[in-house]
Design a protein around this nucleic acid. Structure first.
Length: 506
DNA sequence: ATCGGCTCGCGCAA
DNA sequence: TGCGCGAAGCCGAT
């Protein structure tokens, strides 16, 4: 199968609209101008049709988890994209949905004037909803392009039950992606027809009755603080979920973090990744979630750094975690994260619409958890958990980290979940509480990977492990006491522990 | 400090 | 049909 074809799905199979004025890329998930197969495909179509390319980046404020935190992060990314597309000479319109106009109406209006619409394929959350709605309401030809991860989602035919299962797919086919994947710069050396001259652009926008979101408003939101808050106030979104301080969304910041990771942290990744007080992880998850950076770019940068070439990899497809690449331990274990574990979530959600519910965990886990659903347990209300008011200081610190920074350290996130399983009234409620807390507060919530993490707690992609215990049954058990023994939590607790509550100001 | 047992389903070899 | 093996753990024995 040709690489290009494996990432494209035709959602509305009508003929190309020859009287259309442009090709529209509706950028709902891969919010970047590089390593973007949807942008590449849209530009290919525009060149073929001899029409200009119009890129619209929408963000919906009309869904349950839209908040000051998410809008700020996305708007910061829009300013980066605006600059990139301006330099490339391609028309780009950022648009944050308001009361006045809904996304569906705007998309329909713009689609009627375009030859074909390209949209990001995405297996869950709001981007999936937008995609499915577009398929229902559009008459214009509609292509969905999968720029989610490294291995195209069409390369599996069912949800992989274990990482080991999926790793075989990775090892069998990753060279196809590395040698013939999406381009770093999809708009490089293109026909000038893709650009729209100023005078033509003005009349086009007038006929579309559309201006996008005013630049001045975007600037105010991106600035954050009081200015940002005032700008966001009129939107019908969750204002209690405040923007993360000292955190900037967008491709520019994502690339800076990538440089720091490659040059300073990656070599110590194996030892440091589980140390919450001095973490050597990439911290890129939120930027990956919003598509501000591509996982494929990260992979290329790692392979470049270690001067890897295909002859170093093993011909044997064992699914084993170590040794396949022929690299050191550190890059190999990071590549397993960014490829196997990240893509696993996308492939799972792609094949399983119930990816965020209890029924998505394996049968042995459902059985054992239900068998123990009536075991007595310590209990907290959802509010107590959300407010980080438990007797477990390690857990409270993790919950505070989530609320303040929008992420939880990767090792403590497992403990965070295991304790919610312990404290919620029953395992089904536990899964709902984890999803709700994470969707609301995490910058990378509502992502397939968030669900992988949450449902791993309940046994997904895991096996029965250890003796049968109360509440957990045969599901892998973790405790705060052991975590405290195993990790150096001193720095973490002084940052997020309760006795420092006066550290938060403003 | 390190080691085995706990436990189960998948994919592949036979 | 059997076998090897697996995201991160825990516990008790040495």
């Amino acid at each position: 199968m040709k690489f290009e074809d494996s990432r494209i799905r035709i959602l509305v199979d009508t003929p190309l609209n020859k009287s259309g004025e442009f090709v529209l890329y509706w950028m709902t998930a891969q919010r970047r101008s590089t390593w973007n197969p949807a942008l590449q495909h849209a530009a290919d179509l525009a060149e073929m049709l001899n029409r200009p390319l119009l890129v619209v980046e929408p963000f919906s404020s009309d869904y349950s988890f839209a908040s000051d935190r998410l809008v700020t992060f996305v708007v910061q990314g829009m300013l980066d994209n605006r600059k990139s597309f301006e330099e490339l000479g391609i028309r780009y319109i950022p648009w944050v949905e308001t009361h006045q106009e809904r996304g569906a109406g705007l998309l329909r209006r713009m689609a009627s004037k375009s030859c074909v619409v390209v949209i990001d394929d995405f297996p869950c959350g709001h981007p999936r909803f937008v995609l499915e709605r577009a398929q229902k309401i559009l008459d214009t030809r509609l292509h969905a392009v999968d720029g989610c991860g490294v291995i195209p989602m069409s390369w599996t035919d069912k949800a992989p039950p274990l990482a080991h299962t999926f790793r075989r797919v990775v090892q069998r086919r990753i060279l196809d992606v590395i040698l013939d994947g999406p381009k770093e710069n999809p708009l490089e050396s293109r026909s000038s027809v893709l650009s729209i001259p100023d005078n033509q652009y003005e009349s086009l926008m007038e006929s579309l009755d559309f201006e996008g979101t005013p630049l001045e408003w975007l600037w105010r939101v991106a600035e954050g603080g009081i200015t940002g808050k005032e700008a966001l106030n009129p939107l019908p979104i969750d204002h209690d979920v405040f923007p993360v301080v000292n955190c900037r969304g967008g491709s520019v910041e994502a690339n800076r973090l990538l440089e720091v990771f490659i040059n300073k942290k990656l070599a110590h990744y194996s030892d440091g990744r589980n140390n919450p007080s001095n973490c050597t992880t990439s911290r890129l998850s939120p930027w990956l979630h919003f598509g501000h950076i591509s996982a494929l770019e990260v992979v290329h940068r790692v392979l470049e750094k270690y001067r890897w070439d295909p002859s170093m990899s093993s011909e044997k497809v064992s699914g084993s975690r170590h040794g396949w690449w022929g690299l050191d331990e550190a890059p190999e274990s990071f590549l397993d994260q960014i490829i196997t574990w990240r893509d696993l979530g996308f492939h799972f959600a792609y094949h399983r619409p119930d990816y965020a519910s209890f029924e998505s965990i394996p049968e042995w886990a459902q059985m054992t958890l239900i068998n123990h659903a009536n075991d007595p347990r310590p209990s907290y209300s959802f509010q107590e958990l959300e407010e980080a008011e438990t007797h477990d200081e390690i857990w409270n610190a993790a919950q505070r980290e989530l609320k303040e920074t929008g992420v939880i350290h990767n090792y403590l996130r497992m403990l965070w979940g295991k304790r919610i399983l312990e404290w919620a009234p029953d395992p089904v409620t536990a899964s709902k509480w984890m999803v709700d807390l994470n969707d609301r507060w995490a910058l990378d919530g509502r992502d397939p990977n968030s669900y992988t993490g949450i449902f791993w707690v309940l046994g997904r992609h895991d096996r029965a492990w250890g003796p049968e215990r109360p509440v957990f049954g045969k599901v892998r058990f973790m405790s705060s006491a052991n975590t405290a023994r195993k990790l150096d939590l001193s720095g973490y607790l002084s940052q997020f522990g309760s006795d420092t509550s006066d550290r938060i100001e403003g």
